[in-house]
Design a protein around this nucleic acid. Structure first.
Lengths: 204, 204, 204, 204
DNA sequence: AATGAATGAGAGTTCATTCAT
DNA sequence: AATGAATGAACTCTCATTCAT
């Protein structure tokens, strides 16, 4: 009742603040952004932010948490057991690479920057996002590749290679690799082929 | 010449300062480190630093520039034309991955963090390090793989894939992926195989 | 009457708030205590406090006023004219010293602290508590000591000396004088003797 | 040499800051005074204060420490063993009471206020000022009063009574007791008599 | 060239108070 | 009458940078 409305109001305000923070962080970075910037952007008073978040860092964590759901969800095909290996790999590449294609690179950059420097954030990212994705990846790869005779160790390393490939591609993109920008849409297919067949494939 | 000695003194002092900065940045990060920290560590006065560097950011650029030579050099086999493809790829993985294995991860983390946030640094890194490496990689791969029938486009993307794989692995390592830590020494071989043959290789 | 009930409700709520304020002030001090602390402790909303008190300082005054009655009453023997000088002096010492012995030192400390700094509070204390006590003290001392030939001036100063002795003892106690803590119960007698006979008494 | 000059400069600046702080604290109190107020008053920048003191509270401690020497010194007659009891007591009253007569009451008020609320300051005052004074008082009183047959316990309590009398008188003065103000100069004599002879003296 | 004291803008955060509900 | 979210002024403290010595 009133309680529910309360919760919704609180959630709405939190989202309003996080939206503003995400925009301003993405534009100027975490440290250069002041609480006042965020408050102005959200159309509220400085102090109001502290009614919803403990401190500036908590805003980053908040952005993070909010993104988590959608990220994890995007990476999880609904029914992985029905997919062949190629589709599986391609999907796990296509989602993150395309997700960031839009306007999310800037925010990802900021998060990455802080993660490099903030152990809490790093641990959070690893435990909440990376590890679950790696685990489910190992599982899926193991199931789908039974016929290919991958050992568990190989499955683990392969999943990490795919994940690293994806992260590395993002870094390249952020760094401003224009060749990559031009071919961005083609990357999932290319990378999928690479992972499945290597470069020597054509000779076999 | 007095002039030459002058230059050497200046260079020596600059290095002294950069050494101190690198150590302290690596330990505490860029923003938390104060000019005073660096000065104390270098055994000089705060003001002296400003006789050699314009501002705090210039210290980061300085560290960067100094590292550039060694990085690029490490990645460039002396006589690439004499190497076969496997060795070539493995070498381009083994150098960076092993280089960071030592005590350089911390500083790399800090640099990466600031790169994500500082356009100048990012451009510097891309133009001075990444692009040359990619170019020479494309060249080497093109030469070495003539017989494999890679198109120039494929060579370009492949080089980027290799680079991304490497960067992504570093990120994984930084994030604290313990599986990776355990297998770190085995990664160059594993990744080289993956790139050459893909995961399907075994069935062919 | 509804009006009467109203007044009682208001008084009750005021007391509820003052009770909470007294507890929290005593524990944490005036400045460190927030309105929210008090509200939480009273089990009401922050805003409600402002329906009953103008501002935070008014809470202190309120505590003060409420304490006044009991303090003054404690210090006023019911029938002073029937008491001899020794009893009179001892009683005026025993009440305040013993009253604070319990759990009131903390609040007294806070009040004293703010009195030193807040002219209103100081004036209030002086006019409402100190002056009446001094006056009645002079009166009592004058009556009781007619036979001892105290001049009015001497009576006035003596009353002030007794009062100062008492206040000073409290300060000593607050400061943490352990010797005093140990002898606290014996102080009224000792001080009464001192005031009556001085230290030279024994030779007379 | 240079080092000595350095130390003198530092000491001078510290004193400059403490002077300013003492003035502004005395006028407005500790909490209402801002660092900026003090800096303005001292004619320096805000930040400079933090080159000499850790934080705002350290300014209070600094004022305190600086006052300590003079206070303790004032209370210590050069050659107590040559003084008779009356002179001894009177001196220990006359110094503090007269010292504060001037313009020091305001600052004493502020210190007292914070002492009531700041345990560190309280302990400092007790250990550095009160305890030494009480000890030397007990010693002096013990020596001087051998012939009066005071037990050690009585000496201890008497010293405390004298100290309390003095502190209490100051409180009375601060509270605005006008009778006391008028008789302030006469208090040392009056109190000395009181302590020596009590009020009953005249009859003996 | 080296020093390091002085600077002062600027940050995050707190909290008494208000007022629409 | 009670609420508690919103407010925003104000504070302490930091630190990159300057510059007289």
């Amino acid at each position: 009742m009133t309680d529910l409305i309360q919760q919704q109001l609180i959630a709405a305000r939190r989202n309003q603040i996080l939206d503003a923070a995400a925009v301003v962080f993405a534009e100027h970075g975490f440290h250069p952004t002041t609480i006042r910037d965020i408050a102005r952007h959200a159309g509220i008073a400085d102090g109001t932010i502290y009614n919803y978040f403990d401190n500036k860092t908590a805003l980053l964590l908040g952005i993070f948490e909010r993104a988590k759901a959608s990220i994890v969800q995007q990476h999880m095909p609904a029914a992985p057991e029905q997919l062949d290996l190629r589709t599986l790999i391609k999907l796990s590449l296509v989602h993150p690479l395309m997700a960031l294609k839009q306007d999310n690179f800037a925010l990802f950059r900021i998060l990455l920057s802080e993660m490099m420097v903030n152990e809490d954030l790093r641990t959070l990212y690893f435990q909440q996002i990376m590890e679950p994705m790696l685990s489910s990846g190992e599982l899926m790869l193991g199931q789908a590749s039974v016929s290919y005779g991958l050992t568990p160790r190989e499955a683990g390393l392969t999943v990490r290679a795919i994940s690293a490939l994806m992260l590395g591609m993002m870094l390249h993109h952020i760094m401003g690799d224009t060749t990559l920008h031009a071919e961005w849409d083609a990357m999932p297919d290319f990378l999928t082929d690479l992972i499945l067949n290597g470069i020597l494939e054509k000779n076999s």
